[in-house]
Amino acid sequence: MTGTPNKTPIHIVHTEASLGWGGQEIRILTEAAGMIRRGHQVTLLCPPEAKIFTEAKTRNIPVVALPIGRKNFSGLLAMRRWLKANKADVINTHSSTDSWLVALASVGLSHPAAIVRTRHISAPIPDNASTRWLYKSATQHIATTGELLREQLIKQNGYSPSQITSVPTGIDTEHFVPGDKTTARETLNLPQDAKIIGIIATLRSWKGHQYLLDAFAHLADQNTRLVIVGDGPQHAALQTRITELKLNDRVTMPGNQLDVLPWLQALDIFVLPSYANEGVPQAILQAMLCGLPIISTPIGSILEAILPEQTGLIVEPKNAQQLQEAINRLLLDPELCKVLGSAARARAQEKFGLEAMLDKMEVIFNNAATHG
């Protein structure tokens, strides 16, 4: 989609049914805050028990609690009542449940808002009549978090290329910068003399933590530490696996962190061995901006950020042996780490800045509001 941002303020409504916390929710709040700074009115609709509800209040983003965590009649009625009582120019939906509730609740409204659907992950979309109605008729435009996700919808689902725009998540290039490793480790009570490998991700199975643990357990260099930042449904299973591998004294799990910057600045190597459902992960972009050497997999749109052997190393998904070899390679080659980290930072600064994301989404929102 092309065009220039319309400077007339519009009312952008974000909906999110998910109760979880990860890159998707962080992007919604970051984007919302950016649009508010640009003079637009922004409202977030989400379940009251969702973490994003509390985080939105903390960040001074207007938020309304609605019972939209499930696809049911009460959620549909609540959504329709809100839409009838409040004028919105565009509604940006983010998960399956809220997308369906918004689309169905909008049917028959005298002046329905244009619907923009953001696809954050690479999971396939069902090809049936109801889903085609949702995406091709009820939704005016689709934003994906990577070009590969866009191509997937065009090739596999037959959606019109003109209806879909790839908008990678933008990262604050002024906040995420290389820092003093000694200071960061001192602040976080991490050892100064060890090589520290880290992952920042919601503890979901498909993020590949278990393969990272298996690879880490078999490293030749025992003077290494692993930091697993985040929380999620796999927390107990990962703790059990750490105990089984006898790694309790070498693995740190600090949980979710309000600011991950010091944790990134404390690392020597960043790893994200996902095997499904990725767009362009924010954690990878943050690590790139911090100048870290990165190891990841060719899942989703990760290769739009990581150029193999140029800005990082790529291994097969679910392959602990390859992951171990890649980590060993970086541990033994400090010069390669510097080269990869420097190139990664340059690429992230050029391609994945916050303002670029806001520019693209502003065009999408304004065009949808104008032609909806």
Rank of each mutant, 00 (worst) to 15 (best):
E186I: 02
G372N: 01
L188R: 13
R250I: 15
I269R: 12
K57E: 12
F216G: 10
A283R: 02
A283I: 02
A237F: 07
E309D: 15
L219Q: 03
G208N: 13
A320C: 14
T43H: 07
T311Y: 10
G179R: 05
Q192N: 10
R37S: 14
V229G: 05
M79Y: 07
R150F: 01
A105N: 01
H371F: 00
C46D: 06
F270P: 02
S106K: 12
M35W: 15
E355V: 07
G69N: 08
G3Y: 00
Q222A: 08
L212R: 10
Q210G: 01
F365G: 00
Q234T: 08
T165K: 00
K84G: 01
L354Q: 02
D127M: 08
K155L: 10
G75T: 03
M35L: 15
L289G: 00
L109T: 15
L292A: 09
C337I: 01
I295W: 07
N72E: 11
M35C: 02
A33R: 15
K246L: 07
N86C: 01
L44C: 12
G69I: 15
M288E: 10
G291K: 03
K318C: 15
L323M: 11
I10F: 04
K338D: 12
G3V: 11
Q152S: 09
I314G: 10
P273V: 05
L354K: 04
V280I: 15
N223W: 01
R59W: 07
S74K: 14
L267M: 05
I306C: 14
V227N: 06
I284C: 08
Q324R: 15
A129T: 08
K351R: 09
A105R: 04
Q152I: 00
G69D: 08
G291R: 04
G230E: 11
D249N: 10
M79K: 06
A129V: 09
P334V: 10
M79F: 06
L285S: 06
C46H: 07
L354D: 01
I12F: 15
A283D: 06
I314H: 10
I295M: 05
P334C: 14
A65M: 05
P124L: 02
K155G: 03
N248P: 02
D259R: 05
K338L: 05
E49H: 13
Q140D: 12
N367V: 02
R38D: 13
P62Q: 08
L247C: 11
L153W: 07
G22P: 13
I52N: 06
A201V: 00
G300L: 09
P293Y: 04
A194N: 05
S301H: 04
L148I: 10
S122N: 11
N256P: 01
L134N: 12
Q324P: 08
S160E: 08
H218V: 12
I242Q: 03
N189W: 08
P9S: 13
P67R: 12
D333Y: 00
N86S: 08
P273F: 02
I125D: 06
F73C: 07
A276P: 03
C290A: 07
A215G: 04
M288H: 08
D214C: 03
V271Y: 05
A88C: 12
L238F: 09
L264C: 04
P281E: 09
S95H: 03
S301Y: 13
